[in-house]
Design a protein around this nucleic acid. Structure first.
Lengths: 175, 175
DNA sequence: TCCAATGTAAAACGATCATTTTACATAGTC
DNA sequence: GACTATGTAAAATGATCGTTTTACATTGGA
C-alpha cells in the first residue's frame, strides 16, 4: 500500500475513534508505522492531515452513495454505518472540534455537504419527475443527517426508520 | 451570580465555541474569573466539569422543550438554535471528542437522549390519541436530530423545514 | 559510481496540557 | 481574638503537544 494512503487510512481510524484533538502525532506515527519526519513530509501539518483525511473520505462516501433513489441512498447509508461504524458525521465533528476556525477544514466540510445536497436534489428530481421541490429535498437531507446522528446512540436501525420515512415522503410528492 | 454557576456558564460557552479538548484550563479560569485552585475545588476535574456543564444544559433544555405538540417542540428547538447558536448537539460532540471512553460524559449524554426520547414519545401519544406508534416517534426523533445537525451549515431554517415535515407526519398518523 | 531522493530513529524544540502546591488575604463564626 | 472556610496569585509538577532537526541507512537512476 502506498505510504500516503496508509497514513491517511490510519489517521482516519484514530480520528474517528478518539477524536481529532485528542489524537496526538505520536499515536499517528505509530499507527501509520512511519517516522514523524516522513509523516510531516507527506501531510504538511496536523490540520492539513485532517483536511486530507476528510477529502479522501468525501471521495469514498460519494462513490458509495452514487445511487438513483432515496431508498438506495438510505440503504447505502445503512451499509456505510454498519461497515464503517456510527460515530457521527466526521466532517461536522472536525468542524466542531476546530470551532470552524481552520479554513482548510471548514472548506472540506462545506464541499462535502454541498455534494450531498446536490446528490439529494438530483435524486428527488429524478424520482418525482420534477414534481418534488426544494422543500422535499431539504426534508430528505434532514432525515439523512438525523439518521447519521441518531445512529450514534440507537444504532443502524435508525437509518432504516429514516429510509421508510423518506421513501414515503417522496411517494406522496410523486403521486 | 453564584461562583459555580459562573464557572459552568463560562465553560459551556468556551466548550461550545472552541470544542472540549481544545479548550484549556487556563482559558477556563480566565473566562470564569477565578484561580485554578477555586476551579478545581468546585469542578473536581476537567472531565467532571464537562459532565457538570452537560447536566446543567440538559436541565435547561428540558425546561425549554416542556411542550405538548410536535409543532411547539420544533418551535422550541428553532428558538433554542436562534438564541444559543447552532453548533450541533453538545452532548454528541462531547461524546465524540472523548471517544465515548469517559463514563461520566457518556452517561450524561445517554440520560439526555433518553429524556428527549421519552418527551417525544409522550407528545406523540398525546397528539395521536394513542394511534401513533414507536416508529412515528423515532421518525420525529430523527427529524429532531437532523434539524440540529443540518442547522450547523444551513442555519435555523432547517428547523422550520423539519417542523413542517414532523407536523405532517403526525397529522397523517392521527387521521 | 556518484547523486539525489526517501526513508528511519531519536533527540530537541518551546509551548501548552491538566493538576497540585505554596504562600497569603479576607471573611464570618464560636 | 483565634479558627475555619473560601478565595487569589503564582509557581511547580511531569506529561504531552505539534513540529523541527540531526545523524544515518537504503535505494534507483544519471
Amino acid at each position: 500500500m502506498d505510504i500516503k494512503t496508509k497514513l491517511i487510512s490510519a489517521a482516519e481510524s484514530l480520528f474517528d475513534r478518539h477524536g481529532f484533538t485528542a489524537t496526538g502525532m505520536d499515536r499517528l506515527t505509530q499507527a501509520a508505522g512511519m517516522s514523524s519526519r516522513t509523516l510531516y513530509k507527506h501531510a504538511g501539518s496536523k490540520h492539513s492531515l485532517i483536511a486530507s483525511v476528510l477529502t479522501e473520505r468525501d471521495r469514498r462516501f460519494l462513490r458509495r452513495t452514487d445511487v438513483n433513489s432515496v431508498n438506495e441512498l438510505f440503504k447505502a447509508l445503512e451499509d456505510w454505518v454498519r461497515v464503517e461504524g456510527c460515530r457521527g458525521c466526521l466532517f461536522l465533528r472536525a468542524y466542531g472540534e476546530t470551532g470552524g476556525d481552520v479554513p482548510e477544514i471548514a472548506e472540506v466540510m462545506a464541499a462535502h455537504k454541498a455534494g450531498v445536497w446536490s446528490k439529494i436534489q438530483e435524486i428527488i428530481a429524478l424520482e418525482t419527475n420534477g414534481r418534488g421541490d426544494e422543500q422535499l429535498a431539504e426534508q430528505i437531507l434532514i432525515l439523512f443527517e438525523g439518521a447519521t446522528a441518531t445512529a450514534i446512540y440507537r444504532g443502524a436501525d435508525a437509518v432504516i426508520t429514516a429510509r421508510h420515512c423518506a421513501v414515503r415522503l417522496v411517494k406522496q410528492a410523486s403521486s
